[in-house]
């Protein structure tokens, strides 16, 4: 795993930029990464009645047979008759590899021969059997491609600015950002001391202190856009959450979130998972026009500040992974182990 810490020297960043060979700007709408598990639905939403999800342009019909989840590219009533039109993504069977874990139905996107449960991400704060109260789970939709939605989540300064009324402003005594990465993941750790207490924690969580410290770790799986987040507020609570961005084409993404706030007091534990209903429209107001503009031929490439380090690292890694897949290499690198235990990485044992 490689790491970096945000530098204070904007000029140095600028100088590095001048030395680099010019290349095209990042296009977040072009990623179609394969051979990965996508959490296509909350488990509770999959019943005997089929529902439809989309990954890129590929339909995923989900239902249960004998309590077991099934995933097909055809509606189950048409499965037999349509079998002849089955794609390579189901190996001609019409059925995707599927597994149920952490309260989600995970379906494989890629060559079904490579589907391996060892490649499922480890999510230490969610029960394997998915036994978690319904109030922790919500669905939100973003008006942007999944990669842009992930970058928005990795992005720090916009939260201080755009979501100040819920999450809090960016004023603090100290604010350190570290980025670690492998060929398959990027991890952002933000350590803030003496920050103004987040409004939701003050008004709903009952935290009466003026300032609080927090350590927020966000672990992103590049192929699947699975974002595993562990923010810890002191005084305050841990708000572990999973935000998997399902790529619903080039313009939209769907996020079936789980906020495990079961250890937090009421009413915070019930309201915090619903914060996305406030955050999402705020984010959509900016990512919606932003997404469209990545389809236009830009005269200028995006500019960056040192606060964008996690996002620029994400862009770089996504480009590398996409390039590798374009060349026909869908394997996981030697440094990648999606299923490894990340409890320590998230700071859960601290």
């Amino acid at each position: 795993m490689q790491t970096s810490t945000a530098s204070n020297d904007m000029a140095a960043t600028e100088a590095q930029g001048k030395k680099r060979k010019p290349r095209g700007d990042w296009i977040p709408t072009n990623y179609d990464l394969r051979d990965t598990w996508f959490p296509v639905s909350h488990s509770r939403d999959v019943t005997s009645r089929p529902i439809r999800r989309i990954i890129h342009a590929q339909p995923y019909f989900l239902w249960r047979e004998g309590g077991q989840p099934m995933a097909s590219e055809f509606h189950p009533t048409q499965l037999q008759s349509m079998m002849g039109a089955a794609s390579a993504l189901t190996g001609g069977s019409g059925l995707y590899p599927v597994v149920e874990r952490y309260g989600y139905v995970w379906a494989w996107y890629g060559n079904p021969d490579n589907a391996d449960q060892q490649l499922l991400p480890h999510i230490p704060f969610l029960p394997l059997d998915g036994d978690i109260p319904g109030y922790t789970q919500r669905t939100v939709r973003f008006d942007a491609a999944s990669a842009l939605s992930v970058e928005n989540l990795l992005d720090l300064t916009h939260a201080d600015f755009l979501h100040a009324n819920t999450i809090g402003d960016g004023i603090s005594e100290s604010d350190v950002v570290e980025v670690e990465w492998t060929s398959e993941t990027v991890t952002r750790t933000r350590i803030v001391t003496q920050k103004s207490v987040a409004p939701i924690m003050r008004w709903v969580g009952g935290v009466r202190a003026k300032y609080q410290d927090f350590r927020a770790v966000l672990h992103v799986h590049l192929r699947s856009n699975v974002c595993i987040s562990y923010p810890r507020f002191r005084p305050g609570y841990d708000v572990p959450n999973l935000q998997p961005f399902l790529p619903v084409g080039k313009h939209r993404s769907r996020c079936d979130v789980t906020f495990n706030t079961t250890a937090a007091p009421s009413p915070f534990r019930y309201l915090m998972p619903r914060i996305n209903y406030i955050i999402q429209p705020q984010d959509n107001s900016v990512v919606r026009p932003q997404n469209q503009r990545y389809f236009e031929q830009p005269e200028q490439r995006d500019l960056h500040s040192r606060f964008d380090a996690p996002g620029t690292r994400y862009r770089l890694l996504m480009e590398k992974l996409a390039k590798r897949q374009r060349e026909g290499d869908f394997s996981y690198g030697s440094d990648a182990d999606p299923g490894r235990d990340i409890a320590a990485l998230l700071g859960m044992d601290g």
Binding site: D155, H158, S285, D302, H304
Partner: peptide, 27 residues
Amino acid sequence: DRCPHRRVPLALGCVVGDAVQCGYHGW
């Protein structure tokens, strides 16, 4: 009407003195 940082319309921001502030990251 395009922030050169992340392409968001500057019109979503606000006027600050003799300048306009982007509504996404505050540039």
